[in-house]
Design a protein around this nucleic acid. Sequence first.
DNA 1: ATGTAC
Length: 405
Amino acid sequence: MPAGQEAGQASGTAKDSATVAVFASDASWIESDALVQCHQVAALDGMVHVAAMPDLHPGKGAPIGAAMASTVLYPFLVGSDIGCGIAVFPLRLGRVVPDRLAARFPDLDRPLDPGNETDAPAFDAVGDDIPAGHLEGLGTVGRGNHFVELARVDTVEEPGHAGRLGLAAGDVVLLVHSGSRGLGERILREHTAAHGAGPAPDPAAYLAAHDAAVRWGALNRRLLAARVAHALGAELAEPIVDQCHNLVEVRDGTYLHRKGAAPGDGRDVLVAGTRGTRSYLVAAHAGARANYSVAHGAGRKMSRADALRRGRAKHTVDELRRTPVGSLVVCGDRQLLFEEAPTAYKRVEQVIGDLVAHDLATPVATTLPLVTYKTPDRAAPHRRDRRAGMTGRSSRGRPTGWRPA
DNA sequence: ATGTAC
């Protein structure tokens, strides 16, 4: 079916089903499985309205890239990574040499320990009030699409707005995409064990646990930023953007479930591209038809299994570790390297174009990756890369094939 | 996306 703005309401909504609005142009390909999932969600008891974002793709049982308003609270619509979000931290650095910075990244798979002296700087910067007292996995980035990225502000589309955020072209920022790790997973698992995909019988009890996971996710992003800033010798500032795209919010007498959809009601949101492409900082102004939400990223265009199979035929590991924009990817996990390849995602410009076309957001600035960190690189590639002349790199610290995207 | 089982 066409995925134009009116398509959802014009097509396929059964009589007692909620409305579905898809905020994507006809030119934006959306996997039909994801649209089927939207209509399955629309048929749930109590569902009022489903807004699908242009980065919509199929998830486990529920679509990713959707905001779903219902009089009934369904924990499975938010999923296990309650509190997942993206934060942007300004960072002041001296000389920016991606290879050297990549080599200095700390091991963000190792949990922080409040009793360990080496971890004191992170807690000193952020505090040690840990929601739910949950220490497991604290300060770790996780897997999947999570990342920590050093990026440079590239274009500035709205100088006044960017200026108010303290951003100018050339500035270095740290993007942190992570969530509540095992805590949110445990909350969903406990609900599912008793009630499956059914509603929360005690919404207040679920919301209390959920709210702690949301706070934990925000704290975790700050701890991750503090670890990186400390390792790179940079001072940590408060995030200029930090929006959570997996959560449920009580609004207009309904439970507004966001799954891979960021709050778009007058807030600034970082819409993540891929590690090989730009990301967009946007000023969001989405209304009721969009369930007050905007896209959270480029959106997968193929499954992890497909990305792995096709990526192995198409890319070498070295290609994936040094991107066409000259940035580095720190990822010691080969499978993850293929699963998260830029080619597994839609073009973020198309997603942003759809948000603009539907008047959901206005681009403020774009960022280009310098170093995207996923998981420690045990192969220690940086040593090899220092031999500039032997690896096809120019003396300027960029691959010879570098082009400005 | 996750911890855990295979």
